[in-house]
């Protein structure tokens, strides 16, 4: 009887450990995913800009802020921004669904640490976020920063580099 209980407890522990191992793996994938943009629009920006709050994940707060800035630019390029707070939705600059893979080399250099993407992040709450904007999660931090993205400049540069299609292309 005792032996049976011990076996059951052991199996339960194994299952819990297994579940944890999976969630850790999932978390790692989630942190590293290039599609994990969490964005909340703050309002209508100045002409040619978009203002929204974006979240980044990393082991350290500073890295999460950097990731959030990259996510902000990536969201404008690949996914578009949903509407809210009086602002209408904004479509993605690159409309092809596999733009990230098609121009992988370009975007690797574009999003490299200190890369060109920073040119379009005009303003952020760069001080270390606190409260709800700085959440300790398993394996690191989830940090939210408000950003102003120079959307029109970003679009024009991507068009000039041949990555995005101009509205009047072909005419």
């Amino acid at each position: 009887m005792i032996m049976r209980r011990v076996v059951l407890i052991f199996i339960s522990l194994l299952m819990v450990a297994g579940a944890n191992a999976q969630s850790r793996k999932e978390r790692k994938i989630l942190f590293g995913s290039s599609y994990n943009y969490e964005v909340a629009v703050l309002g209508v920006g100045q002409d040619g800009t978009k203002v929204f709050k974006v979240w980044g994940y990393a082991k350290k707060v500073d890295d999460a802020i950097v990731q959030a800035k990259k996510n902000a630019v990536a969201a404008c390029i690949f996914r578009g921004i949903t509407g809210g707070n009086g602002a209408a939705p904004t479509p993605a600059i690159c409309r092809e669904p596999d733009a990230e893979e098609t121009h992988a080399e370009y975007f690797d250099s574009f999003f490299a640490t200190g890369g060109k993407y920073l040119k379009y992040v005009n303003l952020t709450t760069d001080a270390v976020p606190s409260g709800q904007d700085r959440l300790k999660v398993k394996g690191g931090y989830k940090v939210g920063v408000a950003v102003q993205i120079l959307y029109d400049n970003l679009r024009k540069d991507l068009e000039a580099d041949g990555i995005a299609r101009r509205l009047d292309a072909g005419f």
Partner: peptide
């Protein structure tokens, strides 16, 4: 300013 990007996005789809 708010609505023109959405409008142009749809116009681009029309041209595509």
């Amino acid at each position: 300013i708010s609505y023109i990007d959405e409008f142009n996005g749809r116009l681009q789809s029309f041209f595509d």
